[in-house]
Simulated assay, not measured.
Amino acid sequence: MKKMLLMASVLMAGTLLAGCTNNHILHMNDGRTLVVQGKPQVDKATGMVLYTDENGKQQAVNQADIKEMSALDK
């Protein structure tokens, strides 16, 4: 019984943590749309937005090139 409760707790915790990392959409000024993993981070010193693309590769784009940034609903 304790093992079942422990397994259920671990499964639920993993599901909740996975739900916290929503993908985001970047609508660019040139008409492109980028789907990114997780929430992009803004580097205020350089003005670049850092994100992970759909292939898991780190990318950066100038903040001035982004028209709109929004969370992708699941």
Rank of each mutant, 00 (worst) to 15 (best):
D65R: 09
Q41N: 01
N22R: 11
M7T: 12
M69S: 08
M69W: 05
L6H: 06
K39N: 10
N22Q: 14
I66P: 00
R32T: 13
T21V: 14
S9N: 02
M1Y: 07
N55G: 06
E68T: 15
Q59E: 14
L72A: 12
S9W: 03
D43P: 00
N29H: 10
G19W: 00
N55V: 12
D73E: 11
G56H: 02
Q59D: 07
L11T: 09
C20H: 02
K3S: 13
L6K: 03
M12R: 03
A60T: 12
R32A: 15
M1C: 10
K39L: 13
V49A: 11
E68L: 15
D30P: 02
A60Q: 14
G56T: 08
N55I: 13
Q41D: 13
L34C: 07
V61S: 05
N23Q: 08
V61N: 05
M12C: 10
Q41S: 11
V10T: 03
I66Q: 06
G47K: 06
K3T: 10
T33Q: 13
M28F: 03
V10C: 00
Q63C: 14
Q59T: 12
M28Y: 03
V36R: 02
G31N: 07
T46R: 07
P40I: 04
I25G: 02
G38T: 10
L34K: 03
M69K: 03
N62S: 09
E68S: 14
A18N: 05
A64W: 05
M48P: 04
L16K: 01
E54Y: 10
A45Y: 05
L50M: 08
C20Y: 04
Y51L: 08
D65A: 15
L16R: 00
Q37P: 00
D65G: 06
N22Y: 14
N23F: 00
L11D: 06
L5Y: 01
D53P: 07
K2D: 15
Q59A: 05
L16E: 00
